[in-house]
């Protein structure tokens, strides 16, 4: 009897978690199918009311919009480049932290920690000024550089936690067995390290994709403006009269890459999020 009660509680808990996580997502999807007229006239309620549906019209509108398309390209390009560079650099640093004894290790880790908690807004002023002097204001590198700096801490912490778990003696064991150093590295270490590197890459990509502060302050046109900033500038400044349904369609499009990553790499993401923070 008691066990049954416990099970019921767990099932109820699961249902609550699912509702919590998916309801707002379902809502924005539902909103994206409401017609513009229905939204303008006011259409309260969760689902598009009868006759108020728009089919795919909002999506075609969003995807035909040059600014939005450019912002997708910007976001994908900037996030991928920042992720790639950040993970390469973090791999070097994490290797040193996990494998080598050196003075200043604590300094590197502390710096990373402080930067992870840095209030980003306090940097936009000076960066805005510096980037204009250097001529990289409103360019891809102008965003890639800050994204790298702010994802490095996360990547370094996650990777060094992963690297510490790798049984490095296996490399020597392989060499004793006659493998060349390159073979030992390629066949033994790379397969062991790859999952960690991959996890760090996903988390880094999430950060870059999600960034808003740098996206709005260090860009001025669609030349480099990423999706979150483009969404917020979609309709001008008034937050109280927006073309809700078109915006919702854009929001859904911006969320698709994240959902795909989560669906495929759920395990790795969970491992990465907790590896850095709880147990070394």
């Amino acid at each position: 009897m008691k066990n049954l009660k416990g099970n019921l509680g767990t099932i109820l808990g699961c249902a609550l978690i699912l509702i919590w996580c998916l309801l707002p997502v379902a809502w924005i999807v539902s909103l994206s199918f409401k017609s513009q007229e229905a939204v303008t006239n006011g259409s309260p309620g969760f689902f598009p009311s009868s006759g108020g549906g728009a089919g795919w019209a909002n999506y075609t509108k969003v995807l035909k919009d040059d600014q939005f398309r450019q912002s997708i390209i910007n976001s994908i390009g900037i996030s991928l480049i920042a992720t790639l560079l950040s993970v390469i650099l973090a791999t070097l640093a994490a290797y040193a932290i996990a494998r080598l004894e050196f003075r200043g290790k604590k300094f590197v880790l502390t710096t990373a920690l402080v930067i992870a908690m840095f209030p980003v807004v306090s940097l936009v002023g000076p960066l805005f000024d510096m980037w204009r002097t250097l001529g990289i204001y409103n360019t891809w590198p102008g965003l890639i550089i800050p994204y790298m700096s702010f994802t490095l801490p996360l990547a370094i912490w996650t990777l060094s936690a992963f690297f510490r778990e790798i049984p490095w003696e296996m490399e020597q064991a392989a060499q004793v067995d006659g493998a060349t150093s390159w073979q030992a590295f390629r066949k033994v270490i790379v397969p062991l390290a790859a999952p960690g590197v991959f996890t760090a890459a996903i988390l880094t990509f999430f950060f870059a994709w999600n960034d808003f502060v740098f996206g709005i302050s260090l860009t001025s046109t669609d030349k480099a403006r990423p999706i979150p900033a483009a969404l917020s500038f979609f309709v001008g400044d008034d937050p109280f009269s927006r073309p809700a349904s078109v915006l919702a369609a854009g929001a859904v499009v911006a969320t698709i890459p994240i959902v795909v990553l989560v669906l495929f790499f759920q395990r790795k993401i969970v491992a990465g999020l907790t590896a850095g923070a709880v147990k070394g």
Binding site: C21, P24, A244, A251, I258, L261
Partner: peptide, 21 residues
């Protein structure tokens, strides 16, 4: 676990819009 990662991954701006609407 997959669904719990969705709010984590959703862009904050999108979350803001969803709740504002």
């Amino acid at each position: 676990r997959t669904s719990i990662l969705i709010p984590y991954g959703v862009i904050t701006v999108v979350s803001g819009f969803a709740w504002q609407f």
